[in-house]
Design a protein around this nucleic acid. Structure first.
Length: 334
DNA sequence: GACCGAGTCTCGGGCAACAC
DNA sequence: GTGTTGCCCGAGACTCGGTC
């Protein structure tokens, strides 16, 4: 069998046994390592006569793979050479269609006795050329699955950008507190798709509407979450005003949130003492950073809905939409 | 003792051969 | 033509020994 014959046989069998490529390369590397090329061997049996096959592993168990004894007393296994070939195709050249089956492949070595016979007669140059042809053949036959970062369209984290950069202070024609209330509504809407979210315009008077907080989240007839939204930094003097809210949510077994731009020193502990959970914009940011773009889009859509259809304030709605347009431009995303 | 590599074994799934 | 069976590839769990 000439190198050309062997290569033809390899290509014919490759579709059914892809691992045969790595096995063939491993045979060549093993023979090269122990100095078979140019040593005048006529067959695999001649090689084994010089480098006896080990039929037991170092642990005394039956060896299924090809292990030979080296002249210096040590042993050499086919497996590391096969591993290297598999790494070459899969890790280095991203041919993930090449099978990950080193144990199975190296156990099948005995199916290729003809190849081992032929390889024993080839020169070093012939072996190197054949090895290169096998590698090239596989690289051409199997498609590269290398990851191209440029091929991935990254959607900007719009809601996070809103939290970080949108000016929440009221502009001309906007009611104070509306921007922040809309953002908290968007946050709760996206974070609680299983709940019905109720919200009204700022300064509507939640008591008058039989509501508990500025934003109420219902699971059927049960109030699951209620939030008081404060577009300012809460001081200790403001805490007594939250007592009734804390009492109401506590009585109902509702998770009561106090969402504010920030809290003065020690105020968060005072709020927790009355059974409420203080959440600052920094807390919101930490949570939103873990959201995927789809969830962020839901929050943004809810904010736009709030500005357009709840608050019905065109000034705020246009300011939000203008911000989103700018933020969506490729150069704007972080 | 933890970690890693080498080796064995088992199992699921695809596919071809075969029986009806 | 369809259902069954068996083979074999491919994947991965598991064990064991060597090394640091």
């Amino acid at each position: 069998m000439t190198p050309a014959d062997l290569f033809r046989e390899f290509t014919a069998g490759f579709p059914a046994r892809k691992f045969s490529a790595g096995l063939l390369m491993a045979f060549i590397d093993l023979y090269t390592e122990i100095g078979v090329p140019g040593a005048g061997f006529g067959s695999y049996q001649d090689v084994i006569a010089r480098f006896p096959r080990q039929v037991k592993t170092n642990g005394g168990k039956r060896a299924n793979t090809l292990i030979v004894a080296k002249a210096d007393g040590g042993t050499l296994s086919l497996r590391p050479f096969y591993n290297a070939a598999e790494r070459f195709f899969r890790a280095e050249h991203k041919r993930f269609d090449y099978p990950s089956c080193a144990p199975h492949a190296t156990q099948a070595w005995a199916d290729y006795m003809q190849w081992l016979d032929a390889l024993a007669t080839f020169s070093a140059d012939e072996l190197a050329e054949l090895r290169q042809k096998v590698a090239d053949y596989v690289l051409a036959a199997l498609k590269s699955q290398a990851f191209d970062p440029a091929s991935v369209k990254v959607e900007p984290p719009l809601f996070r950008m809103l939290l970080e950069s949108f000016d929440m202070t009221a502009k001309k024609g906007e009611p104070t507190g509306a921007a922040f209330q809309g953002i908290v509504f968007g946050f709760l809407r996206a974070d609680n798709p299983h709940l019905q979210i109720e919200i009204d315009k700022v300064r509507t008077g939640s008591k008058r509407l039989q509501r508990v907080g500025d934003i109420d989240c219902w699971e059927g007839a049960r109030l699951a979450i209620s939030a008081e939204v404060k577009q300012f930094e809460i001081k200790s003097d403001d805490v007594p005003d939250l007592e009734a809210f804390g009492n109401d949510t506590g009585r109902r077994g509702t998770l009561g949130l106090v969402v504010a731009l920030g809290f003065c020193d020690g105020v968060e502990e005072l709020i927790e003492d009355i059974g409420l959970k203080p959440i600052s914009t920094d807390d919101l940011l930490r949570i939103v950073e873990l959201w995927d773009p789809l969830k962020q889009r839901t929050a943004v859509a809810s904010l736009v809905y709030y500005a357009r259809h709840v608050e019905k304030n065109s000034s705020l709605a246009e300011r939000i939409e203008s911000f989103l347009t700018m933020a969506s431009e490729p150069s704007a995303a972080p």
